[in-house]
């Protein structure tokens, strides 16, 4: 299936198990485990609630700007394969409810690929628990690949966030970095906002919004529904 994008964000329901996206801007949804080939420069936004696995294949010379919001209700696997001369800028936001495990696999199969994953994770309820394994795999005999993982979790109260950053490198010519931060609200930020007269609840809501919204385009922000999150 070949889908042609328009100048504005195209809303697409993907019905096949394998799809190809030509250059364009897409807001996608699907009802099964789905594979999408990215052919050219694609801006892809996806709001997921049902937990279908997604495979993205960046064909040679493809550029993918991915914005992915998952209101986590099931375990899920997201796999991204990069072939040759591709660029990936992935912004992944997970809002978890319950106890779940998410696997994100990024496979650099060819040469001269550049990938950055920015991940933001929160739990919705007090005792929710999420594990996110982010694995970057840089294949043997490849060269000039760059990978950066920027992974952050914000603990709201007594919930648990576990982020496992893995980078498996099977070649010498590579630049790979990962940054993982899991923590609560910054105490000095909270103090500052409170000295301006904000209640603790409002200060936390603003800081939470900041944490998540910076990682999401406008099309996806409306799905966050942060008002349901309890801090107390």
């Amino acid at each position: 299936m070949l889908l042609v994008g328009l100048k504005k964000m195209n809303k697409l329901l993907l019905v096949g198990v394998k799809n190809t996206l030509a250059p364009g801007n897409y807001l996608i949804s699907y009802k099964n485990k789905t594979t999408i080939d990215i052919d050219g420069e694609v801006n892809l936004a996806h709001y997921e609630t049902t937990g279908y696995d997604l495979n993205l294949n960046l064909l040679d010379n493809a550029i993918l700007n991915l914005n992915y919001l998952y209101i986590v209700s099931h375990d899920l696997k997201l796999t991204i394969n990069l072939n040759n001369n591709t660029t990936l800028d992935a912004h992944i936001t997970l809002v978890n409810e319950g106890s779940h495990k998410i696997e994100i696999n990024l496979n650099m199969l060819g040469n001269n690929n550049k990938a950055k994953i920015t991940l933001r994770v929160i739990n919705k309820n007090n005792h929710d628990n999420i594990t996110v394994a982010v694995t970057g795999n840089i294949a043997k005999n490849t060269c000039d690949n760059e990978l950066l993982e920027d992974l952050k979790g914000l603990i709201l109260k007594e919930d648990t966030i576990k982020i496992c950053p893995n980078i498996e490198v099977d070649t010498n010519e590579v630049i790979a970095n990962h940054l993982v931060t899991i923590g609560s609200f910054n105490k000095e930020d909270l103090f500052y906002l409170k000295t301006k007269g904000l209640s603790e609840l409002t200060a936390k809501k603003l800081l939470l919004k900041r944490f998540l919204i910076n990682n999401l385009p406008e099309d996806l922000q409306k799905h966050l529904k942060l008002e349901v999150i309890k801090f107390e």
């Binding site: 930020d189 500052y192 906002l193 301006k196 007269g197 904000l198 409002t202 603003l206 800081l207 919004k209 900041r210 944490f211 919204i213 910076n214």
Partner: peptide, 13 residues
């Protein structure tokens, strides 16, 4: 504080 504007802070306060 990146992501929260002056206007947002002052209006909320």
């Amino acid at each position: 504080i990146e992501g929260i504007t002056n206007a947002e802070l002052i209006r909320s306060a």
